[in-house]
Design a protein around this nucleic acid. Structure first.
Length: 812
RNA sequence: GCCGAAGUGGCGGAAUGGCAGACGCGGCGGUCUCAAAAACCGUUGGGAUAACACCCGUGCGGGUUCGACUCCCGCCUUCGGCACCA
């Protein structure tokens, strides 16, 4: 055995031993309380990067800590392996998406092993394996049975050149990334999950410990608003036009109506003389991306349709316009515009010279003159016939009631949240297990026929069109109900669907009879600690909550939420403070860092650079400090130490005090994921131990306590070096199965503390004082100080403030 | 435009009402060495000084307080997210 710290010798050796012993396998039949720790599983892009390490290494440390706290910890890992990049590789380079994906998985699996993380590989899942996606399809069928899956029209990015649907990321400046055609938004029949059914429940975060930031983002994303749906008659059209408004109280001020360009009544309200203009506008709008339409910078645009609606309250004719600031996906896709009390409507009215009629007066605004801006809140209703004089506070309720009484509409709660489109016109995904039959309609694939396997040997076209649509043999089937010729659904499932239930599969990943054994579900679920990036704040994290609630209502899982605690790490950046990217040339490869300094050092450096939730630049030059520290720990444990039995010595008391203080503080830090300050404290402890050792003989028992505590506290962060040194001290294998050290509050307590003495808030001196010193004592001692006397001079102290353990402030 | 987070030494950061800059990088000086590296020790916010005393300092401007990086009001900048949501 070498006496020098050489990570490259010890790290692989211990990893092999741990794997051989299945040290991190979480047994299902273990009497200890369970702890389910989960970190978001990666997409197998081909190479494990620093971002993966930054997400996983601290998660691993937290999971290891729980294990030392006596939990049966399950910390699984897998791959979210369906998705667009594999398909792109197939299209661009003719590679088989399967071969590409599984090659990447193999590469990343071996890279992940170098991390020395305590993953339970026995539970690994790969979402593109038929053994996994069989159950994704099964869940689809269950949701269909519950009426939570349905088909409807939805807008999609359509490339007329490629004759296919594009993802948002494939649209660059409104053009197709492949063929440069101008992208249009077109209606397409797609599969949906009825997530809006759970909108109200998803707003409730009781019982989960999640960052406020994420809860706020989800709440805003769901976007609940209360108002009314009101129907307007349209001249010459035999169908009413319903609008959703949060301000039914402003209906007398509605001076125009606006339809979204995609609204289904557009054709019917448009008069012949306006048709050409309207059609041109709609075409133009279909080329706009959602982002462009949502920009507030640009001027309002729109066209008049020539049609009129009738205000049901006063019978006035209201012109109907079309404008892209109204979105077809929200409310009813149409609004009654009240320019006096809505900023956007005001801007539009000004742009096109439409009338602006205030229906409230105001203490701040003179309503007898033309308005300069819209105002939201008023005093009492005006210009509103019989409702004039209604106070602002009562207006909304009164008008809503009137709408209902007159049969014009009803009180409505509207959500910004839209139903989840799970259809993808792609090959590399789980086929949606449905069959289209001319007589029976959409028929589910019988459970016994799952999985619906992806066909082999398909040809990819340069257009990006899914090969499934051309796989005639695969598509042609018999209808399961009437046995007549029918066709398979060629859409595949959104990959967010695969990751919405993966935490359930980990509890029983090999099960061939069910997604998981309910008994095991009860044992392991829900996830106790989830960690991952905040970029998933509203999509993945909302979908998985929805999925869980739907599964709960089917009796498949218990409890209201899938993830009890959530922590979001920040984004790790390159040394230049920018996102790491090959084009910027600022990529730090984890493999290089491990080759140079070892996995333990890289893990610790990632945890040391700053608060985990803030992310930040990773600068490899800073690694020197961590490497030095690990070397210092090494020699502290390996080098001979002069010991004696001297329990009563002050130095012994000091060493023990520091040991117990360190345990206390490190425990607090790791509980709250403050790895950076945790390592700082351990560095201080290491230095103090070196000083104690160099100062002469140390007490045998106190030294053993300090040394073992140091190793145990380091173990979750740097699993290899701590295991090696633990073994070298002759302790029993494995350090990762030892209990976390306990601290004794009594031993950790200081006898004396330094008190700062201020005069008028400025520090003039400091003094040592017993921790429990009385106020009188402290003041007396402070005033007796020479420097304080000099500062106070002839003046008389007006007031003296004493904060025990902190300071004395003399105000003169 | 809206929402959220953040602005502290040369750099990463610490301190959430009580000593601003813990810990680390880098720099400077030293020990060891023929020399260098490594390691170790010392030092390191700015100004001023022979040295002290002292003064200034947490994006900017106000305020609350005995006391503000921390709380309040108003700005500026950067980053992240997004939804003109009627």
């Amino acid at each position: 055995m070498s006496d020098r710290y050489d990570p490259h010798t010890i790290e692989p050796r211990w990893r092999e031993r741990w794997e051989a012993d299945r040290l991190y396998h979480a047994p299902d039949d273990d009497p200890r309380p369970k702890w389910y720790a989960l970190t978001m599983f990666p997409y197998p892009s081909g190479d494990l990067h620093t971002g993966h390490w930054y997400a996983m290494a601290p998660s691993d440390a937290a999971a290891r800590y729980r294990r030392m706290r006596g939990y049966n910890v399950m910390f699984p890992m897998g791959f979210d392996s369906f998705g667009l990049p594999a398909e792109n590789a197939a299209i661009k380079r003719g590679v088989d998406p399967r071969a590409w994906t599984y090659g990447n998985i193999e590469q990343m699996r071996s890279q992940l092993r170098m991390m020395g993380a305590g993953f339970d590989w026995d539970r690994e899942i790969v979402t593109s394996d038929p053994s996994y996606y069989k159950w994704s399809q099964w869940w689809f069928l269950k949701l269909w049975e519950q009426g939570l899956a349905y088909r409807d029209e939805a807008l999609a990015n359509w490339c007329p050149g490629c004759n296919t649907v594009l993802a948002n990321e494939q649209v660059l400046d409104g053009r197709c990334e492949r063929c440069d055609s101008v992208v249009e938004r077109q209606f397409l029949t797609q599969w949906f999950f009825r997530i809006t059914e759970y909108a109200e429940e998803l707003l409730n975060f009781d019982g989960i410990d999640w960052p406020e930031r994420i809860k706020t983002m989800q709440t805003n994303w769901i976007g609940r608003s209360e108002g009314a749906t009101i129907s307007f008659e349209v001249e010459g059209v035999d169908e009413d036009l319903p609008v959703f408004t949060t301000r039914p109280d402003t209906i007398f001020g509605a001076t125009f109506m606006v339809l979204a360009p995609e609204h289904r009544l557009v054709q019917r309200v448009t008069t012949p003389e306006h048709r050409e203009e309207v059609e041109a506008y709609c075409t133009q709008a279909s080329h706009q991306t959602e982002i462009e339409r949502m920009s507030t910078e640009r001027e309002k645009t729109g066209v008049f349709t020539g049609g009129y609606a009738i205000n049901p309250f006063n019978g006035e004719r209201i012109p109907i316009w079309i404008a892209d600031y109204v979105l077809v996906t929200y409310g009813t896709g149409a609004i009654m515009a009240v320019p006096a009390h809505d900023e956007r409507d005001f801007e539009f009215a000004q742009q096109f010279g439409l009338p602006i009629i205030p229906v409230f007066d105001s203490d701040e605004v003179d309503t007898s003159k033309p308005l300069e801006a819209a105002f939201i809140e008023g005093r009492v209703m005006i210009n509103s016939g019989e409702f004039d004089g209604t106070p602002f506070e009562q207006a909304k309720a009164r008008l809503t009631k009137a709408v209902e009484e007159r049969g014009l509409g009803e009180r409505t709660v509207s959500y910004r949240l839209r139903d989840w489109i799970i259809s993808r016109q792609r090959f590399w995904g789980a086929p949606i297990p449905m069959i289209h039959c001319d007589t029976c309609g959409a028929v589910p694939v019988p459970e016994s026929q799952l999985p619906v396997l992806l066909p082999e040997n398909v040809t990819f076209q340069s257009s990006g069109k899914s090969p499934l649509t051309e796989a005639e043999e695969w598509v042609s089937v018999q209808c399961p109900q009437c046995e007549s010729p029918a066709r398979r659904e060629t859409d595949t499932l959104d990959t967010f669907m695969c990751s919405s239930w993966y935490q359930m599969r980990f509890v029983d990943s090999q099960n061939d009879e069910a997604p998981f054994d309910p008994e095991l579900g009860r044992k392991w679920l829900p996830v106790d600690q989830y960690t991952g990036g905040a970029e998933h704040a509203v999509m993945h994290l909302l979908y998985t909550r929805f999925f869980w609630k739907a599964a709960r209502d089917m009796g498949k899982v218990e409890g209201p939420e899938p993830m009890l605690r959530l922590f979001n790490q920040g984004v790790i950046l390159g040394p230049d403070g920018n996102r790491m990217s090959k084009s910027r040339g600022n990529v730090v490869a984890p493999d290089d860092q491990v080759r140079e300094h070892g996995a333990d050092a890289f893990r610790c450096q990632l945890m040391f650079i700053g608060p985990w939730d803030q992310g930040g630049p990773y600068n490899p030059t800073g690694m020197a400090g961590i490497v030095r520290w690990l070397n210092r720990i090494w020699s502290l444990i390996v080098d001979p130490v002069e010991t004696a039995s001297m329990p009563g010595e002050p130095s012994t008391r000091d060493l023990r005090r520091l040991t117990h203080k360190t345990i206390r503080e490190v425990t607090q830090d790791i509980e709250s994921f403050r790895f950076n300050t945790l390592i700082a404290r351990l560095m201080e402890f290491t230095t103090a131990m070196q000083k104690a050792r160099d100062a002469g003989p140390v007490d045998d028992a106190a030294w053993t306590e300090a040394r073992d505590s140091l190793l145990l506290l380091v173990a979750p962060l740097a699993p290899h070096i701590s295991e090696e040194l633990w073994a070298r001290r002759g302790n029993s294998y494995s350090i990762h199965q030892q209990p976390w050290p306990e601290f004794d509050e009594e031993l950790a307590r200081d006898d004396e503390v330094e008190i700062v003495v201020q005069v008028n808030g400025k520090v003039r001196d400091r003094m040592m004082l017993a921790v429990d010193a009385e106020e009188g004592q402290a003041k007396e001692a402070a005033l007796a100080l020479e420097k304080v006397g000099a500062s106070v001079g002839q003046k008389t102290p007006r007031k003296v403030i004493y904060v025990p353990g902190k300071l004395v402030n003399i105000v003169v």
